[in-house]
Amino acid sequence: MEKETYTPAPLDTSGEVLPEALTSLIEALAKNVHEVWAQSRLAEGWRYGERRDDVAKTHPCLVPYEELPEIEKAYDRNTALGTLRFIQAAGFEIVKRK
């Protein structure tokens, strides 16, 4: 039996404009996205290496967020931005605790 072609259908968040108060959250969320990813990789036995090697389990991005190349930070920021836009588009609000 042949599998059907998968067509991703994410919620359209392109029209979502985040309140100014949430823009500072993007960088903090991006850093946390990286930290969670790195923690998971390290728990799986990965370690830092100059090149990604799936067999040797080495990856050049197993460094603190601040040391990542800008292109990697941008990837994490886009993930954070997409997450915040999704939350808003789904009808939720983010409120900072006092």
Results as ranks from 00 to 15, higher is better:
G91W: 04
Y75L: 07
A38V: 10
T13V: 14
E72I: 04
E50Q: 09
S24E: 11
V33S: 03
V33D: 09
D12G: 01
D53G: 14
T23D: 11
A38F: 03
T23I: 11
R85G: 08
Y48G: 06
E35V: 14
K96M: 14
H59N: 14
E66Q: 11
G91F: 09
E16N: 00
L68D: 01
V95K: 14
L22Q: 14
V33K: 10
P19R: 09
E72F: 02
R41E: 13
L42S: 07
D76W: 02
F86P: 01
D12V: 03
L81K: 12
E44K: 13
A56G: 02
L84A: 06
A9G: 00
P8C: 09
T58L: 10
T58F: 06
K3F: 14
T7V: 15
P60I: 02
I94Y: 06
A80M: 05
S14A: 15
A80G: 06
Y65D: 03
P69F: 00
A28V: 09
V55Q: 14
E2D: 14
L25D: 11
A28G: 07
H59W: 04
A74P: 00
Q88C: 05
P19E: 12
R97D: 08
I87Q: 06
R47L: 09
E72R: 09
V63I: 14
L22T: 10
T79Q: 13
Y75N: 08
P60E: 06
P10Y: 00
D53K: 12
